[in-house]
């Protein structure tokens, strides 16, 4: 059984790491854009960001003072057993969020939408959000934290089958241009797109595509992967760079996740992660040992299953 104190400590460590350390995959993708950026101001901004990542790591400070809306994604192995069960996990995650808010420190961003009351710990009604997924044939549990900006760079639209890829591209350009000006989307960013599903699934998939896939990781469906590459190039050809200054650094990567949708529709959502792309994952093994990393590996083959049943894997591949 995994002790609940181990879950709390791992969630705390992941939250601190996410706030302070830029993920390697994002940094590699960003540096590739910096190398080809021709706009003087956009280039200056990106150089300042690279310096900022170094300062954050050296001083153990948050990269950005806008905490966004810190949240958790839990992936539980089907055979994982945790002391106290899922109710205890939820309390541990809320506790870890509050402790990290004080210790890093993170700005307490979460307020009641009407009274604007702030508990000063990023915990409150439906905050932090906790989403769940499951993984067959394993007994570890993974806690991923994401601190995504909360205000700009997201949109949803009901398109229809006849709108096709043209409709997708127009919607993509509309959002990139609207939120790219003055850099409100905090670009260059990982752009996530949810395609299909019901309306809420469409939003959830798009946000997960932005926040839970590493830069360079293409969708396994070749047709979707091709569209991802096209949209990335389209975004970087708009003529805008960092802070909306003239340049070419807009999209570090584009990730699309699909869900089966109503036969008459093609809903689409778009989400921009940010220049700090704050995410970290802790895997807690059944023996209580913990491994921290910055790539969430959320979209496992099981997550993208298309059939009724999931085949049993042989024992040798267990806990891979």
């Amino acid at each position: 059984m995994i002790p609940i104190s181990t879950v709390e400590a791992a969630a705390y460590d992941a939250m601190c790491k996410a706030a302070i350390e830029i993920p390697d995959d994002y940094l590699t993708g960003l540096k590739a854009l910096v190398a080809t950026e021709q706009g003087d101001l956009s280039h200056f901004v990106l150089e300042a960001m690279l310096e900022n990542y170094e300062a954050a790591k050296a001083d153990r400070r948050a990269m950005c003072a806008d905490t966004g809306v810190p949240r958790y994604y839990v992936k539980s192995g089907n055979e994982a057993v945790i002391e106290g069960g899922f109710v205890a996990i939820e309390e541990a995650l809320r506790s870890a969020c509050a402790r990290a808010t004080h210790d890093v420190p993170l700005r307490p961003n979460r307020v009641h939408p009407l009274s604007r009351h702030d508990n000063n710990n990023n915990v409150g009604l439906n905050a932090p959000e906790i989403e769940y997924s499951f993984e067959p044939d394993t007994d570890w549990i993974e806690i991923t934290t994401v601190h995504k900006g909360g205000l700009f760079g997201t949109d949803y639209r009901m398109l229809f089958p006849a709108d096709g890829v043209d409709g997708i591209k127009r919607f993509f350009l509309d959002a990139i241009i609207a939120f790219g000006k003055r850099g409100l989307a905090c670009q260059p960013a990982i752009i996530g797109i949810g395609l299909g599903g019901s309306k809420d699934t469409c939003m959830v998939l798009g946000k997960q595509a932005a926040c839970l896939r590493a830069v360079g990781e293409a969708n396994p469906d070749p047709e979707v992967a091709k569209l991802e590459a096209e949209l990335k190039d389209l975004g970087n050809s708009v003529g805008m760079g960092a802070m909306g200054f003239v340049g070419s650094s807009m999209v570090v990567d584009c990730h699309i996740e699909c869900g089966f949708t109503h036969t008459g529709g093609m809903p689409i959502s778009i989400h921009a992660f940010c220049l700090s792309s704050r995410r970290a994952t802790a895997r807690i093994y059944a023996n209580g040992s913990v491994q921290l990393r910055s790539e969430p590996n959320w979209f496992t083959p099981y997550m993208r299953r298309n059939e009724i049943s999931w085949p049993q894997v042989e024992k040798s591949k267990k806990s891979a």
């Binding site: 200056f44 901004v45 300042a48 960001m49 310096e51 900022n52 990542y53 300062a55 954050a56 001083d59 400070r61 948050a62 990269m63 950005c64 003072a65 806008d66 850099g183 905090c186 960092a242 802070m243 940010c274 220049l275 700090s276």
Partner: peptide
């Protein structure tokens, strides 16, 4: 004066 990035939170914190 606009901040840069956004945001260079650690540099400004320093």
């Amino acid at each position: 004066l606009t901040t840069v990035g956004y945001g260079t939170g650690a540099l400004l914190g320093r």
